[in-house]
Amino acid sequence: MARARTPRSILPGFGISLGFTVAYLGLIVLVPLSAAFLRAAGMSLHDFVAAVTSPRVVAAYRLSFGASFAAGLVNMAFGLVVAWVLVRYSFPGKRLIDALVDLPFALPTAVAGIALTSLYSPGGWVGRFLEPMGLRVAFTWTGVFVALTFIGLPFVVRTVQPVLQDLEPEIEEAASTLGASRMQVVTRVLLPELAPSLLTGFALAFARALGEYGSVVFISGNMPMKTEIVPFLIITKLEQYDYGGATAIAVVMLVSSFILLLFINLLQKWSRRSHAI
């Protein structure tokens, strides 16, 4: 009976490929994650709530989500500019810049963290000029934000670039023959076309920033209530053998990230509505 309900498809292997996908995702993603849930399920509700609502933990959530979101937004804007320049213009050194974009992917995050810290610390190359202007970067919220922006850049560039490449310049010409100003071409024609890929890039950069540890712990200073990110807090709990507390924080982090990413996916689906047939 079940067979009769499946419409005939010329794409073979749906059953086997879906089976593989589910099994693979289960093994690689779901099993480790559910271990965290199981561990947290061992706590009483009271302990769980107490563990995840202590002021120190809430402050860490605020920092992690806030800085990651801000970094994602900044990357969305500047990643678009970088992708635009790389696609639309040709200039000497273009290949070099193109390769440079991927560097934050390849660099061990600890190296990035140490490099950023030494740059932005009060005596560092950049920090020394910012300090007199009253701008402190290292060991503040700003430092966390800078590190997260650094590691998130490639995501937006690499998702927007191919879409931009496929966008025919003719649609811009068409818009301008119809009397649209340059600004109207950007806001009414280009950005809507790029929105799905921009959102994907943002979601990836944001998710990456949430989980980032290596580059942040050096530049943030990890002061409780001030510059302590969630992943660092989890490590701290683990070092204190507070496994329950650590997993409780992790579970809340997981669920809220999942909801956020799901929301971004829906937003993306909505912005892509015209491509559905």
Partner: peptide, 30 residues
């Protein structure tokens, strides 16, 4: 944009994210 010409491209160059109605209305809306 100032010449009042209607230009039709070989590969249409329609705005993919707009409906037929919005495509046609574009020149008036801007």
């Amino acid at each position: 944009g100032k010449r009042r010409v209607g230009f039709v491209f070989q590969h249409y160059a329609l705005f993919r994210h707009m409906t037929v109605f919005e495509n046609v209305a574009f020149g008036l809306r801007v």
